[in-house]
Nucleic acid binder design. Structure first.
Lengths: 329, 329
DNA sequence: CTGAAAGCGCTTACAG
DNA sequence: CTGAAAGCGCTTACAG
């Protein structure tokens, strides 16, 4: 910029005015400056601008896995809202590791993102308190914050699971298995709570061997599904706690001798084309992302309100697998 | 930092030393500085650091759609490589709009990302020449750059399409339809070229009504597929140019009276569970992303080489739909 | 082992 | 309409 000013024979401020299209520059001066800019190949350095202005026009997003079919649309929705507000998006995957979540979130804060959206992996977010106090707006999405009070945008995991399990009960099932993610993950715990409540509401006993929480790696899920379907009092239906678990369960059921009913939390691509179609409790990941980002930008626009928890509804989509009657033992 | 120095009664440089864990500070001094840091809630501002150091330790990624099941794993792979090199990832979607691609890429350059990875939407990238000249390493992925010479990491679209169509021919098909993306997209053009070459190699004539390139919106693809399957000399097989087209074609075929063979470019989740399973020419999007990012960081590490085009192989996965014989008219 | 000065590339008041 | 000075929060030489 200094060089441009020298070449155009004007002051630094005049160059700044031209670059930022501020008024108060003669057409002639502007032309001279523009010439110098192209001659020198000048490109404004936004880092310097940011340092001076205070705001970085960027937001950070920490989620579990950028490649997951559930989080990818959430990511995209956050990007769209950021873009509408002239901000760039810096994001990364925690890989469900609390240390990595923390490291990434703090790196984003050190870059002075204006705001932060977090899908938490850990359950203690006190490490963010100094950052929030220093003015970095923070919204949690998909799961609530741990040990601090902050905005959260969630799906109704309890209600969705309750509805899905009640649907199986309505179709005659009495022995229903639940396979979900690790119990320290809020959504997994809530969905299990929904399962238990639906069973209790129907007056059905629950055998603890019908419940399995843990990593969603195909190997574990496959083994647990097979275990629940074996023996002489097998479950006649499965309720699966997220998209990854459902995909594996569909494979196990397809290879099983007797038909097994299935309702899965989260929708899957092509789920309607399988035989039978997979009945799901669908979330709207894009809406989760959009809602969280809009809340973030409201805060950045100066709206002050106490932290709030928003719960978005889920939607049961019946496609066949959840309407199968119990197989005769 | 100034405040910390004042409070600890030391110079600015000493604080800097402590923050950066540089040697040459007494244990006692370090303790005093650390106390001041926590008392004041000091957090280093990486923007300032970056301005001074020159490198931002961040890379930019412009792709078509963060939410697309093909690009999401590519995105994640780039992130992993960036992370291994201590860099953050700033990314965004072009939505297949050349202006938006340009706007986003230049915004990233203005932030002075160290390097840029681009899935091009447009076909003229001369706008990046000043940036590249100024030292921003740039690698194109999935599609090559237009009108500039730059590194590119691609899948073998021609070879993959050729193999997929030859597979259909080997199973007896003579009238094969091709539905692909807009012709100005490099991969779409290459896959069409592969289709034509495979037909020519088999000595089969091609009726131009069997070919349809255009937007991959379900409505258009559905209409075109139905058109090719109607009349008294319908195609007996379809070759689809990407994951979105394949998903729609599967639905059309499922609703069609006679069986229709199908081979799709790109793999789909659950494709193996459909009846019949969907035969595909699979790419490896994560490997594309990883390869491009590794090439970028090699350049950032100072390796100087002429721009190179790398082509990764595809893999035909036979699952049933591509092995169906032609239906009798 | 420690610190004062200069500078990274901009913008913000303020003055002409 | 235009510009010189100060400063954003750090780091880089350099000197004690």
């Amino acid at each position: 910029m200094k060089d441009v000013a020298a070449r155009a024979g004007v002051g630094l401020k005049t160059v700044s005015r031209v670059v930022n299209k501020e008024p108060g520059v003669t057409a002639d001066t502007e032309r001279r400056v523009q010439e110098a800019i192209t001659a020198l190949g000048f490109r404004r350095n936004d880092s310097a601008r940011i340092l001076r202005k205070g705001r970085t026009a960027s937001v950070g997003l920490v989620l579990e896995d950028l490649a997951d079919p559930f989080y990818a649309p959430l990511n995209r929705a956050v990007e769209e809202v950021a873009r509408a507000h002239g901000a760039l998006l810096i994001n990364g995957s925690s890989a469900e590791d609390p240390d990595r979540e923390r490291e990434l979130a703090l790196a984003l804060c050190a870059r002075r993102v204006d705001g932060l959206i977090v899908v938490p992996a850990g359950d203690d977010h006190r490490y963010l308190e100094p950052e929030i106090a220093a003015g970095i707006a923070t919204v949690f999405v998909d799961r609530p914050a741990g040990r601090i009070s902050a905005d959260a945008v969630l799906s109704d995991s309890f209600g969705g699971a309750h509805e899905g399990v009640a649907h199986l009960v309505a179709h005659g099932h009495r022995r229903i298995g639940f396979i979900g993610d690790r119990p320290r993950i809020h959504t997994a715990a809530e969905r299990l709570r929904g399962y238990r409540a639906a069973m209790a509401d129907a007056g059905l006993p629950v055998d603890e061997s019908w419940i399995s929480l843990g990593p969603t790696a195909p190997g574990r899920v496959r083994a647990e599904a097979r275990r629940m379907l074996a023996g002489d009092r097998p479950v006649t239906a499965l309720f699966t706690g997220n998209n990854r678990v459902t995909a594996t369960a569909v494979r196990v059921i397809a290879a099983h001798a007797r038909p097994v009913a299935l309702v899965g939390f989260d929708d899957l691509e092509l789920a309607d084309l399988l035989s039978p179609g997979v009945t799901v409790v669908a979330q709207d990941p894009a809406r989760l992302g959009r809602t969280a980002a809009e809340r973030l930008f409201r805060r950045l626009d100066g709206v002050v309100e106490p932290p709030r928890r928003v719960e978005l509804p889920t939607r049961l989509i019946a496609r066949g697998s959840g309407e199968l009657p119990p197989a005769r033992g």
